[in-house]
Design a protein around this nucleic acid. Structure first.
Lengths: 341, 341
DNA sequence: CCTGCAATTCGAAACGTTTCAATAGCTGGA
DNA sequence: TCCAGCTATTGAAACGTTTCGAATTGCAGG
């Protein structure tokens, strides 16, 4: 590997001159610059970025930590981060937090191989994040709230109000028998969504039936199995509110397998507005999060934080109800029939 | 930021001793190690990974370059890479090649911030890749063939035979009027798939009709528009072979919008077996690539190449035809009717 | 009490850059 | 002719580690 020393030697200049020339500094005379650049070409010189980073004490790169690089994740969110950082002239690298303490994410976090991080990986402990964050290594967390730390910012979606809207949508359309298909109990997202659901139910004075609280781990498979159980159990609700779209899709598959028509016999509503929610049959009613904006905002926050400007530290982003075909007005006769029970 | 010097000072030992202690070397006495580790804890010391990398001249990290981090990409492939590298104790970071020379990918390639790279990003030039590859920076390319370079390996899917199988599947079921929905003309994948298609047609002595060669850029939108045109044109084929699943889905949407039933009136076949192909209505017949294996093999190749073992340099992976519901036997009466034209 | 050896510890160089401060070379005005 | 004031160039330090070889220590054996 040719180093800058080799280049300098071949060009017949000092190492410092070579460095200036290669970085297009105006201090160096044009003909000297030419010599250096030619020498670099001859030797096929390529800068050692690691040495550069060490000396400059920055990398111009932001780290995006996802639970699993192989998805599923919010691609719009990543796009928001990507576009924004690119326009700010920062690089973006992504890594996975799978594998606990040996994961690439943990290593990069602990060893500061970037200038800041955006974290969307619920399996990473708060403690680990708090330890890594400093003034010169700001962190934005997207899946939790971490308060009281100078260098940690939070951008979270207003899950509670989203859950409320979704439940209200069903209630307004005459549904009273609504099952909630829950995600992991330790997920903040799930918890908040459910709280919104509960609030809407309470406001409408509808009791929540424990047997209609199902659990599906946020996976399609989980939604499928939970719904299978629900069907076997015999007493179907008139609507299912799934904590995310994956589970909603699983639920619709289970209903389809059982010959139950959506939305004719039962309404289904999801959460997330993942791309596939537009391609199910029927298309899924769901709650959309402004994921691109979340990503873009996160990138901006990191940037401003690095540049030492002050920034409001916590953000709550609104949601939007997307009404498609999987939910509809509870039919009169069914309603009557149900009410007389 | 506390450095190892601070730790050494606080512990009252030499820097080298502190380094040994922190790296669990057996050379250091247990009570010394304890002192050092305590000091590190007190100072909240975190190793500077960049300095370490510089000194050791390796990063234990492999770079995965994708065209667009925000997808769509082959998640199974990424999973294969991820799992394999993890088991080999290597880290994985992913970045995007969008943005030309300023892209994170270009920077990382040129500046060697990893120990090797796996590339699936057709917008990166061969030349750039060739310049970056060296004995101590092996590269695996997945979307092209680069020969005659000691440190570049190729793992490509047998697109031609996949295209052949798909076309033959249609022909065997009585189809003779088959449209080919092409991807970008500069895509190797597309080219090979089409070659397979052409070979099958030729063997069956079916002429290829230019008006049934459509172009869709590998996107859903492109497939939709091309198919719309085909429909307007009036003379429908009995089957459409799309160069990838995205376009096939676009095509099916266009057909649906026009009230044309798949597969009753027209068969559709795709390529890639993306996850969504199982969730379309009807489910899409397609060609599956062993993507997990491609990813895993790539990771292994990089690893072995770093460890200086020799490795066969080019690999062609088989494909498999996945028959689902979007293709079927051409009905007799239709066939007769068509033949008399 | 000395010698030799193993177990520890230490000092310093090295990795490849960037960048500060100092030097050298020049131009042009006095 | 000399010097002030440039500009272009240089040497060296520094970034935070790892690791080599040397130095120190403690101790057993003669």
């Amino acid at each position: 590997m040719a180093t800058i020393k080799d280049v300098a030697k071949l060009a017949g200049v000092a190492v410092s001159t070579a460095s200036y020339a290669l970085n297009q500094s105006s201090k160096v005379a044009p003909q000297t610059a030419r010599k250096v650049i030619d020498a670099a070409r001859v030797l096929n010189y390529q800068k050692n970025g690691i040495a550069r980073d060490l000396k400059r004490n920055k990398t111009d790169t932001i780290l995006l930590i996802l639970h699993n690089l192989a998805g599923p994740f919010y691609s719009e969110l990543v796009r928001g981060v990507q576009d924004t950082l690119q326009s700010l002239n920062y690089g973006l690298i992504a890594c996975s937090s799978m594998g606990g303490r040996d994961s690439t994410a943990s290593r990069f976090l602990a060893e500061r191989r970037a200038d800041g991080a955006i974290i969307l990986a619920s399996n990473l402990g708060d403690q680990e994040i708090e330890r890594a964050a400093r003034k010169d290594f700001p962190i934005v967390v997207l899946d939790r709230l971490i308060l009281n730390h100078d260098s940690i910012m939070s951008v979270v979606v207003d899950n509670k109000s989203g859950g409320y809207e979704a439940a209200k949508h069903l209630i307004d359309r005459g549904h009273r028998d609504i099952a909630y298909l829950s995600g992991p109990l330790d997920s903040r997202d799930n918890l908040q969504r459910r709280k919104g659901f509960e609030q809407a139910m309470q406001e409408a004075a509808i009791p929540i039936r424990p047997k209609w609280l199902l659990k599906g781990e946020f996976t399609r498979q989980g939604g499928y199995l939970a719904t299978k159980m629900l069907i076997l159990q015999g007493d179907l609700p008139s609507a299912i509110f799934a904590g995310n779209d994956e589970m909603a899709i699983g639920a619709m598959n289970a209903l389809k397998d059982a010959g139950i028509k959506v939305p004719r016999q039962i309404s289904v509503i999801g959460f997330d507005d993942i791309e596939m929610s537009r391609y199910t049959t029927p298309q899924l009613t769901t709650v959309s999060q402004a994921n691109y904006e979340v990503g873009s905002l996160s990138a901006h926050l990191i940037y401003r934080s690095i540049k030492e400007e002050i920034a409001k530290k916590d953000y709550i982003m609104p949601t939007e109800l997307i009404i498609r075909d999987s939910s509809r007005e509870l039919m009169k006769e069914v309603r009557g029939q149900r009410e007389q029970v």
